[in-house]
Computed example of a mutant assay.
Amino acid sequence: MQKLFTFLLSKSLGLYINILGYIYPKKASWLAYKFFSHPRDGRLIKESLPDILKEADAEMITHNDFLFQMYTWKGNDTKVLLMHGWESNASRWEQLIGYLKKSGSTIVAVDAPAHGLSSGAEFNIPQYAEFVNIVVQKIKPQYLIGHSLGGAAAIYFQSHYPNDYITKMAVLGAPSDLTTILRNYKGMLSLNSNVFKLLEQHFFEHFRIKTHEFSGSIFVTKIRAKGLIAHDTQDTVVSFKEAEKIAKAWPEAKFITTTGLGHSLHGDALYNSIYSFLFDTE
């Protein structure tokens, strides 16, 4: 019943935006972008945090008009930074943190904009990367792990904010092309071609982003850090083809495929592979 309600709501919203696109195109593009960029899940309440986050040292970082939440599980001088994805929060790393702790490393996780305890209502990759740059300059991590849109943001960050701190990064279940994400969104709401063009125009006018050029397969060519790419062949959220695009453009990165883990990519074998990639000396 809930799935049917969500389906009908999505299609009704799309129909409204389609009609609006011919009458008030500016409002239509704003609405289309709003529902594309405003997460409806992933928030946390400070008074009832998941246990894994209660174990960490919590710190709120101020950047411009935003507040961003950072969690630290203290260890040695080796630091691992974790970036979650859409409609999630830092607690999604609970299972992986158990593995990473075996290394004795310091583990740091962040809540993305408009997620967890971080402020804001809008999520976009450039803003996420800007915040992560503040964190990286502060803690100087050697390793970076990102899941889903957090993985895409990790690639964007490492290509647009080059640094000598991060030597290895793992990208899990990440999309490559913004155009692909937008087309999936278009299909979900049944948006017409007119609104799709308005949405692309919105990205250029507000962010100077040409959607066809916003691609992880382009960004990874600028990355010097060693990479690990992991994706499930049965991922129904982000197509396996997206990982293949990234892997093809990043030939020095190790490409791990799984079957049956889905988009979440929680699994002992994968976690052991990530651990080995980060901490085993070659």
Rank of each mutant, 00 (worst) to 15 (best):
L13H: 12
G14W: 01
G14I: 01
G14E: 02
L15T: 11
L15K: 08
Y16W: 11
I19Q: 13
Y22L: 11
I23D: 15
Y24C: 13
K26C: 04
K26T: 04
K27Y: 12
W30R: 14
W30Q: 15
L31D: 06
L31G: 02
L31R: 06
A32T: 02
A32I: 01
F35H: 11
F35Y: 12
F36H: 02
S37I: 10
H38F: 12
P39D: 03
P39I: 00
P39K: 00
P39H: 00
P39A: 00
R40F: 14
R40I: 15
R43I: 06
L44W: 10
K46D: 09
S48T: 09
S48C: 09
P50L: 10
D51L: 08
I52D: 03
E55K: 10
E55Y: 08
A56T: 00
D57C: 12
A58Y: 11
A58H: 14
A58I: 08
T62Q: 13
T62M: 07
H63S: 13
F66P: 08
L67N: 15
L67W: 08
Q69E: 11
Y71N: 07
T72C: 14
W73G: 03
W73N: 05
G75S: 15
N76E: 10
N76A: 08
K79V: 05
K79E: 04
V80A: 06
L81S: 02
L82E: 01
H84P: 11
H84C: 06
H84T: 13
H84S: 05
G85Q: 02
G85P: 05
E87Y: 07
S88W: 04
S88A: 14
N89L: 04
N89D: 08
S91G: 10
W93C: 01
E94M: 12
E94C: 06
L96D: 01
G98W: 07
G98Q: 12
G98D: 13
L100W: 01
K101I: 13
K102H: 02
S103Q: 06
G104Q: 11
G104N: 11
